[in-house]
Each structure stands twice: as structure tokens, then as C-alpha cells.
Design a binder for these strands. Structure first.
Lengths: 209, 209, 209, 209
DNA sequence: GATGAATGAGGGTTCATTCAT
DNA sequence: AATGAATGAACCCTCATTCAT
């Protein structure tokens, strides 16, 4: 009776359209009508697939980043692997061009308590950093296992610092592009990390206070 | 004469009220009426002091962070100074309790081009990181001058990484508090930096292609 | 498909409602909500058809007067034709019951420079007098061609005086109904015009310095 | 005890300021604050002299036009006197440069019933045309008494047409300046009137129906 | 399933007026 | 008498959502 439609494909189309519009206008200023137009469908149709603007946004956030799936290339030589994975993570972020601007709105929504969907959102939010954190941690762990990296700190913590620095640099670049030369800065970050991970170096530090 | 009023005090009162409301509800959802109520004044009165919601927000952002004014305590022993200044910068951020949630909206506003006030906003935005970046850079420079820190990288770049990492950690904590133990993470960050700044270590590394 | 609607009919309905409300309250005091209610629709719906209050007003002005379409009845005997067309023009104005009160606001809006739509408005404004001026002029010209009316003045100028007098009488009546007996006054006006147009009479007078 | 002030002078100052502001912005868009500023006094002070914006406006309207006070120059030769008085009336209107734009708003206010002050306004409104109408009528009457002008119509009616035509021309000029050459048009009007007033001419017309 | 016409709650902003000084 | 800070009612317009077709 009803037309046969690939609902999933249509859903994806709407999400792609939403990515464009939300990135451009921000969550608050984005209009559902614009999303519909961008997707080439009717305004009402969007609501056949997503119950609300917020839900669409949440769904969109789920599809923001595609992480590198092949870990093997990071797990050879630990020192090279670490350098490579840092660059790879940055690239994954950069490739999701609209990722960042959308992420900001995501944060903005998440930070406010009131919303009943907070937990849903938060669960989603972890995902933004969980995967790359685990990925980097694995590389570090490999290096630690092979005694190439110091064991003074847990791989998770180290990974966390790395991801944090990458994210922080991206923010600074957003607010003031002239101050940030991403390639050089990433190299410097890598240098710090490598230095801090040298077996000898690390041992002396952090007397746990 | 009309009512005698300390306009500056009143302005500050409104800004404080705005900080509460904007932090709680976000820029887009905050209502000027709520700001007025929070400030204990009439809706129209807010507009006697700020021409628009956006201007109030911008002004508010200007007052978000109070940076440490006494640099002397960071300029003694470079290694201790660096540790201290990192903690001090973090503390300045942390003290501005609503800083972060407001900053997010600030970003969100800044990222979208259209607005005519973009430049005003951007100029303001630099301020968020400029001061601490310069502060940290000065400490690093002092250490470099005394040959305690490697000169392989410019103090500015190093400071940038440090600020970025602090910021990134704060974001991760926001999205997933369980993964972040700020004190420990900051120590780890400090360790990496110190290691990377050891004169011998740095020498070998890529001198900024 | 969505609701099927005769958009033009709906537009007309809104304009009619607007005519009532604008005439009653004046442009400045009229509320879009009242227009909507008068039209029996929701507030937002008005904006589906007209982008702003001002645009609705302009559009309304376009529909204010219906001019006599059949000129033939004025083009027979010139003297009778002139008498008839003067009455017809007056009647067209009078029939548009709310015309005058709306026109006043129209003037008020037009006179103030600032507005970007001034040109649109002005173009519209000409229309209020253009058509009847041309109509009367044609009748006069016919009379002049047949040597029934003096050629000492251009038909356009003569028509202009006639329209002006009609309009002026309507204004005086508005401000002080007791002083104006429109039928008698129009007859007097006609008399003056006829006298002035007598071939012999006109010859002596200043031929437009 | 209180400062000694010439209240009338101050009142006049406010009215003059109001004339500027109301003429420029229109009644609806004029701001009391602007009037105060233009008058060089405080916002609240205006209310010491006028109970409301509307009252100020009404008072202003009372002072709009200064009519020619010396009638004698119109009462010599009737034909010359009539020509002269028509020009004099026009000039009185023209001299009150802001008169017209304010008058429009005056109409707009007057036309709407609701207002309790309607009668006050109307009484004022008559004044705009009463004086010149009587003035012109007197000139016509003089001519009629001397048998220079036809007695077929009352002087009042004739005066009314003349005033009406002048007013109508001014309106047309406002909406479309290119179509109106005021001097020439006034001459033409005068011609019509003179022709219509010729003793012989008038007799035949207006069979009272 | 798809559509887009209709809706109305909601919020930023204006400004005449009040009144403490 | 004079002031201008404070006020809040009022209103235009937006846009997420609904639902008749």
C-alpha cells in the first residue's frame, strides 16, 4: 500500500542535512525548516523520522566522528606508533569538519541540568573521547609492556592528557587562528609526551604528595 | 535631581545576575526577564545598562576570569615557578565557577559568522587564553634564560600546549567527571612538560620544521 | 499533501480584516493579533502570507480603491462627461469606506524618510491619484479636442485641480462634517471648472508663466 | 522659595521642540525623550508642563499656523484681493513648514473614535480651516457686495472649495512632487474661481436639483 | 508516507510614565 | 522645580510542532 522507501537511507539524508544546518547556524539558531529544505523534503517529514529537534540533534551527534578502525598500524614500533596515532586522532577530528562547531552546541545542551535527556546525552558525550582515549592508551600500553615507555603513569591517564591537549589546541585555534600552527603544535606536544615517557625521566617525578 | 545611583555597582549587580542565569540556562535559553528578576530589578532596567542581550553577554564574558596579578611568585626558581603557575592558572579557571558553561555559549556564538559583532567577540575571546598564555610563557622564558629549560621551542608555543591541555582536561571532566581526577592529571601534565623542557632532552627533536 | 487552500482567497481575507482593523485603530495602534482574530485565523498565520505589518499595510493600500473601469460613459458629450466623471471619482473614493482613514496613515508613513521601503510606498501613493487624474484628464482632453473646452491649460493640470479639490473637501468634511454638504460642494466645484473651461473665458488668463 | 521661572517661556520651548520631533518622526514614532532632549531639559520635566504625550501634541497643534492678521490688503479691489488672499493662505500653510506632516498625524489621531479627547481635538481641527475659510469668504463677500462677483453661491461655500483645492494640491505634491508645480497650479485654480464668479456665468448653473 | 498550512507560546525590546531625590 | 533612573505593559515576530489532506 505505502510507497516502498528505504527508511534508513532517508534518515541518513536528514542527518546529513542536519549536520550542515546545525554546524552553520548552531543548535539554537538552526531551523527545522532549513533542515528539511537542505534534505530536500517537507517540513513535516522530518518529524516522521525524528520526534523532535533535540532528538535529531542527539542522533546527529552519534554520527559525528568516524574513528580509525585499523589499529594495527599504531602497534608496531611504540615510539613511531604513538606519533602516528596522535596525528591520526587529530585527523579524525579534522575530517569531521562540522564536528567541532556542532560539538560546542552539544556541550551547551549537555551542561544544563534540567533536561530529562541529560543521561542520554552524557552517554553519547563520553563517546567523543572514549574511543580515541582507549586507542591512544592501547598504544601507550604496548610501549610500556615493551619497556619503551615508563610505567610511572597509567596508559589511560597519559592518553587523557594527549586527547585533552589536542582538543584544547583546536579550541584555541577556533578563537584565534593566528596563534595556532596545528602541525607544529602537535609535534611539540608529541615531543613532550615522548620526553615524559622516557623510562628514566618519569621515575623521579610525582611523589604522590 | 533624580535618584542617586552607583551605576557601576548596579551594572556589576546585573552582570552577576546574568552570570547565574546564563550559566544555568545557556545563552539561547536565558531570558532577560530572569536576569532582571535575579538582579532584583525590572525588566526594562536591564536595558538601561545594556543595549541588548548580546551586549550583556559580551560584557559578562569580560568579567569571567580574574587572573593572578602577582607574577613575582612564579619567577623565582623556574621549575617550581612552572609547577606553581600551572596550578594557579587552573585555579583561576576553577574559581570562575560559571566560567565554563558560559564560555561554551561564547564559543557557540563566536563560531557563527553572520553576526556583526563577531570582531568584538573574537577580540574578547583571545583574552580568555591570551593572559594565561603570556603568563606561562614568561615563566618558561625565565627558565630558558637561566638555561634550566631547553631552548628548542619558543616559550609561547610551550605555554600554548599547557593551556590547551588544561582546557581540554576541563572539557573531558565536564562530559565525564568519573574519568578525570584533575589534581593527578595536572601533575602528570606538569611532569610531561618538565621532561620535555629538560635541556638535554629537547635538543634532539624536530626544531619546528 | 498538505491542507489544500486557496491562498489568494485567504490573502484577500486577511487584507479585508486588516482594512477593518487598520481603519479603526490606525497603523501605529493596530495589532497584528487583532488582524488575525478579525480574519478568524491564528496570529502566526498572518505571517505566512505577509512578511511584516508594514508589508500587509502596503498591500492593503493597493486594494483600497476600485476605479471606474468603463470610460466610455464619460467620453460622450464633454460637458456632461465632465460632470459625470467628477461624481464618479468621488463615488469611488466614498465607496472605499475605510479608504480615507487608512490613507491618512499611509501619508504619515510615507512622509518620514528613514524607511527603506519609502520608494515602494511612494510608488503606491502615486496610484491613489494617478488613475483618477488620468481619467479626468482624458475627458477634458476630449472636450478640448472638440473645442468645447478651452485649450488654455493642459488637461492634466485641470484634472489635478479637480482631484485636489475633491480630496480637500473630503478632508474638511472629516474634520468638521457640519461645514460640508458634499453634493452641493461638488456641484459648485463643477460649476467653477465648467466656467473656467469655457473657450472664451480662458483665453485671457495667464498661460502658465 | 522655588526658582523663579518663566513657565510660559518654558512651555513654548517644549512646544517648539515637540514641533521638530513630531514633524520628523510622526506622532506614533516620536519619543518623549527626544522632545526633552531637543528642548534641552530632562525627560521628567516635560511632564511638569504637559500631562501626556497626547496633550502635548494637541497643544502643539494649536500653535501650528499663524494666519495673516491684516485683512485690509485683501479688501480693496475684489478681483485682486481674491488672487492675493489665495496666495496668502497658501503661504501661511507653506511657512509653517512642519505644519503639514504634523497635521497628518493630527488627522490620524482625530479620525479614531475611541479617544475621549476627540471633541477637544475636533474643536482644534476646525481651527485649521476655519480662519482661512472665513478670511477668503470675507473677500468674496466684499466682491459680491460690489457686484463684481456672482451671488449665485454663498461666499462660505466658495471659500471652502478654494481651501479644499489648496489642501488637496499640497497632498498631491507630498505624494508625488513631480506632478505638482504649486505656483502654476494655484494660478489655474484662481482662474477657475474667477471664471466661476463672473456675474453672468454663474447665473445659469446649479438648478438646486 | 509525505506534506506544508496553521498555530500560539514565548521572548526581546521599546517607551510613556512615575517618583525618589 | 527639575531630573533621570526605574518600571512593566505592550507588541512584533519566530519557529517547533501538529494534523488535515
Amino acid at each position: 500500500m505505502a510507497r516502498i522507501v528505504d527508511k534508513d537511507a532517508k534518515k541518513r539524508g536528514i542527518i546529513e542535512a542536519a549536520a550542515v544546518v546545525f554546524a552553520r547556524d548552531g543548535f539554537a539558531n538552526a531551523k527545522m525548516a532549513d533542515v528539511a529544505e537542505e534534505a530536500g523534503i517537507g517540513k513535516g517529514t522530518v518529524y516522521e523520522y525524528f520526534p523532535s529537534k533535540e532528538d535529531l540533534f542527539l542522533e546527529l551527534c552519534r554520527h559525528l566522528v568516524r574513528w580509525p578502525q585499523d589499529k594495527s598500524r599504531f602497534l608496531g614500533d611504540p615510539r613511531e606508533g604513538l606519533k602516528t596515532v596522535i596525528v591520526a586522532v587529530l585527523e579524525s577530528y579534522e575530517k569531521a569538519s562540522s564536528f567541532f562547531t556542532i560539538l560546542i552546541d552539544y556541550w551547551s545542551v549537555v551542561v544544563r541540568d534540567k533536561n530529562a535527556k541529560r543521561d542520554l546525552f552524557l552517554a553519547q558525550g563520553e563517546g567523543f573521547y572514549d574511543y580515541p582515549r582507549r586507542l591512544v592508551a592501547e598504544v601507550v600500553r604496548t610501549g610500556q609492556a615493551r619497556k619503551v615507555f615508563s610505567r610511572a603513569f597509567t596508559a589511560e591517564k597519559i592518553a587523557q592528557i594527549i586527547i585533552a591537549a589536542i582538543e584544547g589546541l583546536r579550541i584555541q585555534r577556533m578563537l584565534d587562528p593566528r596563534h595556532v600552527d596545528m602541525d607544529a603544535d602537535i609535534k611539540l606536544l608529541t615531543h613532550f609526551v615522548m620526553a615524559g615517557l622516557k623510562p628514566g625521566n618519569a621515575a623521579r617525578r610525582t611523589p604522590a604528595r
